[in-house]
């Protein structure tokens, strides 16, 4: 049995060529219609009237400009929060056995299973004017819902699982031995983490952060509910795309959409590169072990 994904052309089964070609063409057709055409179309529509118009669509409209800026302001704090939480949580879950561990693992997945709109609503019901903390927040002059803090909160909620989910298997595979060795050699917690733990998990962390960031910038439903959709104030890029489209400003909508799509493509490239790198490292480690054992 071979476990790689290379095409096994010389199989003894030797499926007849119409089957092989038929299946391949069918798969390609689906990919082209569902993935390739829409993605290419986004860029085509955005750039149809030339680069100058594209530039103007992106940066000429103050509301669009603000939406781009707001997205760049909302995503980093949410990603940072999930980075710190993700590392701490993966650490606790993989290194210790404590009561409530199974519940914690289940709760981490909650943001994936709850509809983003419901997630947004939960925060409105907590922090909105009619919510539990609403009156208190208003009395102290704090605004969360229909403002940037609310956007950061829901974005962090919706993207919470990415880093943890990525790190738990990585940390489980690495195991606690190297950390224990570091402490037994006299390292304090800080030295242990930065010198031993971090180098072993950094690629996994980066992978989680990239996926987390892509989702944070692209989030629509939850942000829609808590933002109040105020142009020039609480509209992020995905919300702006929708609004421009509703206003029949198709070139504007596609221009903003192309930036989001570009981000997705960059994410995909980084993800592939990281996966490739990780595989290569494992392969190198295995290969050198084998040759050494033989000598």
């Amino acid at each position: 049995m071979q476990h790689n994904v290379k095409p096994t052309r010389s199989t003894s089964r030797g499926d007849p060529w119409p089957v092989r070609w038929g299946l391949t063409l069918a798969a390609l057709a689906v990919l082209i219609v569902l993935v390739l055409v829409p993605v290419v179309n986004v860029f085509y529509q955005a750039l149809e009237r030339g680069l100058a118009a594209y530039w103007h669509n992106l940066f000429g409209d103050p509301n669009t400009r603000h939406a781009i800026l707001l997205t760049l302001m909302v995503a980093p704090p949410a990603v940072l929060a999930n980075l710190v939480f993700g590392v701490a949580c993966a650490w606790a879950v993989t290194r210790f056995r404590f009561p409530g561990r199974a519940i914690l693992l289940t709760l981490i997945d909650l943001p994936f299973s709850v509809s983003p709109v419901v997630a947004g609503l939960m925060f409105v019901l907590l922090f909105g004017m009619q919510g539990y903390f609403g009156p208190w927040l208003r009395a102290h002059g704090l605004k969360i819902i229909f403002a940037t803090p609310g956007l950061i909160l829901v974005t962090a909620f919706v993207t919470l699982p990415f880093v943890v989910r990525e790190l738990v298997p990585v940390m489980e595979a690495v195991g606690p031995e190297e950390d224990e060795a570091a402490v037994s050699l006299g390292a304090n917690g800080w030295q242990m983490f930065w010198r031993v733990t971090w180098p072993n998990i950094r690629w996994g962390v980066l992978y989680g952060v990239i996926l987390c960031n892509a989702r944070a910038m692209g989030e629509f439903g939850a942000v829609y509910v808590v933002s109040g959709h105020i142009a020039g104030r609480t509209d992020t890029m995905p919300l702006r795309v929708e609004k421009l489209f509703q206003e029949y400003n198709t070139p504007g909508a596609f221009a903003v959409a192309s930036v989001l799509t570009f981000l997705a493509l960059v994410t995909l490239a980084l993800k592939t590169w990281l996966e490739h790198r990780e595989r290569q490292e494992i392969a190198e480690a295995l290969a050198s072990t084998k040759t050494k054992e033989k000598q």
């Binding site: 031995e177 224990e180 060795a181 402490v183 037994s184 006299g186 390292a187 010198r195 031993v196």
Partner: peptide, 16 residues
Amino acid sequence: VRERNVGFVFQHYALF
């Protein structure tokens, strides 16, 4: 373990 100054060799070495 940090304060005890022991040399511990782990079963699977746990080299960094």
